[in-house]
């Protein structure tokens, strides 16, 4: 006699139909991503003009809520908003009321009184951008939540591959490899979701302590401990920043051992596809996870990733603010 199992599953905080938020990429279809990239092309063109400003978002207010520090991402979003003539209000905690136990909801309600139309949210806890959608009518863009997701980073990485891959013909049949601390990486999680959605095969590589076995159950994902095997035939290889505190937590024996096994070098890249790209979401630990020379080589598109951040984020803001009107 087996009782029926019907554990309660609450409704997901997802959006249907017209996109209201960018919380994570599993809620976006491949078509919506391709449409966003076409908008990004237009925005990228704007950024080549002498006057790098258009009136597209005039009258809108974008709030950046950074509960966790990230100057680069915040500046990139603020630039993307101002380049479209939106007003920007910024809120950053650093020992402010949040750390004194104010609830997330109260913090948001207080800021929401300033009446922004869209919030860009960065938080150390996974799920916070989802929680905030319950308490505001404004659109929410996830700028990184805990280990969970960093969707605009994945979009700009993917846009960069589309832009820089010689003779780009889509993601079907492509092998894309991510090397490093997968376990703690929201960049890895968002990229593997987006790349597999677009048809690529994703290989995750790193020491087993930083490479959770559950990720192998994600469709289109392979787990691999040997760098050579992971890089072989790859069309792009992304190295992730290694947080140096991982050694203290017993996840790695030593930096030297990590460098010996997982540092991305020109020699290893020789095993990749002849036109393979080298990527890094930044900030780089040169010569730890990526060879310094390789980072500056012709294969490297690290600078294009940084440059594409602004037009991709412009397109996201435009799509959510104008697209929902």
């Amino acid at each position: 006699m087996t009782p029926a199992i019907t554990p309660t599953v609450p409704e997901r905080a997802s959006t249907q139909g017209k996109k209201q938020h960018l919380l994570d990429l599993q809620e976006w279809s491949a078509e919506e991503v391709w449409a966003l990239f076409e908008t990004t092309d237009v925005m990228a063109q704007v950024m080549t003009r002498t006057i790098k400003k258009v009136p597209a978002l005039q009258g809108f207010t974008v709030g950046t809520l950074f509960f966790e520090n990230s100057t680069r991402t915040r500046l990139s979003f603020e630039r993307a908003a101002r380049a479209q003539s939106a007003d920007v209000i910024s809120f950053a905690t650093g020992g402010s009321s949040m750390s004194k136990g104010e609830s997330l909801k109260d913090t948001l309600r207080t800021i929401d009184a300033l009446k922004a139309d869209l919030y860009v949210v960065r938080h150390q806890a996974a799920g916070v951008p989802y929680q905030l959608t319950r308490w505001t009518d404004a659109a929410i863009v996830n700028a990184g939540d805990g280990r969970r997701a960093h969707p605009t980073q994945a979009l700009l990485d993917t846009y960069t591959f589309r832009e820089c891959s010689p003779g780009f013909d889509g993601f079907e049949g492509k092998k894309l490899t991510i090397v490093g601390d997968i376990a703690h990486s929201r960049v890895a999680r968002s990229n593997l979701r987006l790349w597999t959605k677009l048809g690529a095969q994703v290989t995750l590589c790193g020491p087993s302590t930083l490479l959770p076995h559950e990720l192998e159950q994600f469709p289109g994902v392979t787990r691999c401990f040997r760098l050579e095997e992971a890089v072989e035939g790859a069309h792009a290889v992304m190295a992730l920043r290694l947080q140096l505190e991982r050694m203290q937590k017993g996840l790695l024996p030593s930096l030297a051992e990590y460098q010996a096994r997982y540092r991305l070098t020109p020699e290893v890249m020789a095993l990749a596809d002849a036109q393979a790209l080298v990527m890094h979401p930044g900030p780089m630990n040169r010569d730890v996870e990526i060879d310094g020379e390789l980072a500056d080589s012709e294969r490297s598109v690290v600078e294009r990733q940084v440059a594409n951040g602004v037009p991709v984020r412009m397109a996201v803001l435009y799509t959510l603010l104008v697209g929902r009107q």
């Binding site: 554990p7 309660t8 599953v9 609450p10 409704e11 997901r12 905080a13 996974a126 799920g127 916070v128 989802y130 929680q131």
Partner: peptide, 15 residues
């Protein structure tokens, strides 16, 4: 006896 870990997919600390 009644709830599984999937309930956290909605990111509600009640679970």
């Amino acid at each position: 006896l009644t709830l599984s870990d999937e309930t956290l997919e909605g990111f509600d600390p009640v679970y």
